[in-house]
Structures are given as structure tokens and as C-alpha cells.
């Protein structure tokens, strides 16, 4: 095989550095842009309140209420969590985060900004998930809808109708609390005592 050049063409010198500091524990929300149309998925609508939903679906008042409640429940379980108000607001904008105290500790998380629903009027079980949006200039999902799974819908938040892939409705794995830490890493402590140099060289090869 023959290539004209054997090495990377461009390296961004500013982004790559050896010196680093540990970043805050903030869990960023990853992004994927869903294409606007022509994609397999459930026809879905986004609502910003129960009222919003009920106005558009006068025949489905109770379904709207149930979809909202199910989204709130999912929001409490799976919303992105931050150790500090600062980290949360950096991602979602100022005054867009709430302080939460639970049995597993205290943290900050964004307010639910809306919910996405599919099959509201069908007899089959409908799907509902909480949605967030950001007012922060530093966030990749500023003025867009994003799920707790990290899916960002393309288009502005004013757009309320999408074909959402089934992964949007897949429940995000969550835990209520951590029962135990330190279950990985014990072999290193055992083997690190070896050696006369007293250095710790890491476990790479």
C-alpha cells in the first residue's frame, strides 16, 4: 500500500497538551443530532406543560396528565446531576438548575423544560420522556431539546414535532445510590509493593 503522506496532516496544538488539571465532576450531556425527517422512528410531539398538551389534545386530557407525570418521574430518576450550581449553570444557563437533596446525597440538576410523547392517542402504551434545554452560551445544546440520554434534537426549541428513534424512549439506566466503591484497583495495590526503585510506573505496557 502506498500513501502520499504517512503522518497526521493537522494537529490542533491548543487542544492537545500534557499539562492538565482534573475537571469538575459535572456530567456533560453528550450530543447526537437526529435528522429532521425521513428517519425511522415514532412520530412524537414535544410539550412544555400539561396545559400545552391538553390544548392540542382535548380528547386526551388524562393521557396528557399521565404522560407529564411519567416524564417527571423519569426526570427525578435520570436528570443530569452536578456537584455544584456553577457546573450545572455552565451547562444549562443561570437560574436553570435546582438543588436536590435525596437519601443518596445532594446535587444540582436542570429543571425539566418539556416532555416528548409518542402514541398519545393510540390504545397501545404511549411513551414519554423528560426534555431539557440550555440557555448557556457555552453549551452545545443551547436553544435545542435534549434528553437525559444525551440526544439533542436538531432544530430550534420552537420546533415541536419530530420522528424520534426508539432509543430516545429507552429508559436511561440509573441507580438510587452507590452501595460500594473500590471493587476495582486492588491488584495494583498488591503488586505496587514490588520493586526497589519505589516508583510507580503505571500498569500500561
Amino acid at each position: 500500500m502506498s500513501h502520499s503522506q504517512k503522518r497526521s496532516k493537522h494537529i490542533n496544538l491548543h487542544k492537545m497538551r500534557k499539562a492538565f488539571s482534573l475537571k469538575p465532576l459535572a456530567i456533560g450531556v453528550a450530543i447526537v443530532f437526529l435528522s429532521a425527517c425521513g428517519e425511522d422512528g415514532d412520530a412524537s410531539k414535544i410539550y412544555v406543560s400539561v396545559d400545552d398538551c391538553q390544548k392540542e389534545n382535548p380528547d386526551a386530557v388524562s393521557q396528557c396528565q399521565a404522560a407529564f407525570e411519567s416524564a417527571i418521574e423519569e426526570h427525578n430518576r435520570t436528570a443530569p446531576r452536578f456537584n455544584s450550581q456553577n457546573d450545572c449553570e455552565y451547562e444549562f444557563g443561570s437560574d436553570r438548575c435546582q438543588y436536590v437533596q435525596s437519601q443518596s446525597g445532594s446535587f444540582f440538576m436542570p429543571f425539566m423544560a418539556g416532555f416528548i410523547v409518542s402514541r398519545l392517542l393510540q390504545p397501545s402504551p404511549y411513551y414519554s420522556q423528560p426534555l431539557y434545554t440550555s440557555f448557556s452560551p457555552y453549551s452545545p445544546f443551547r436553544s435545542r431539546w435534549v434528553t437525559s440520554n444525551g440526544y439533542v434534537f436538531d432544530g430550534d426549541i420552537r420546533r415541536r414535532s419530530y420522528y424520534a428513534p426508539s432509543s430516545v424512549y429507552k429508559p436511561k439506566p440509573a441507580v438510587n445510590r452507590t452501595i460500594n466503591r473500590g471493587g476495582f484497583g486492588s491488584t495494583v495495590r498488591a503488586k505496587s509493593s514490588w520493586g526497589s526503585s519505589g516508583k510507580s510506573s503505571g500498569w500500561g505496557g
Partner: peptide, 19 residues
């Protein structure tokens, strides 16, 4: 590595209890 946690639902967690 030593900070990885095990959550009550069987998933591994980070220090913010995120899965």
C-alpha cells in the same frame, strides 16, 4: 479506577452516582 462504584441496581457509578 478505585473510585468506580457499584449501584443498588447493578450498574457501575461515577462519583456523582451517574451510571
Amino acid at each position: 479506577i478505585e473510585e468506580i462504584g457499584l449501584g443498588d441496581t447493578g450498574y457501575f457509578t461515577d462519583l456523582a452516582d451517574e451510571v
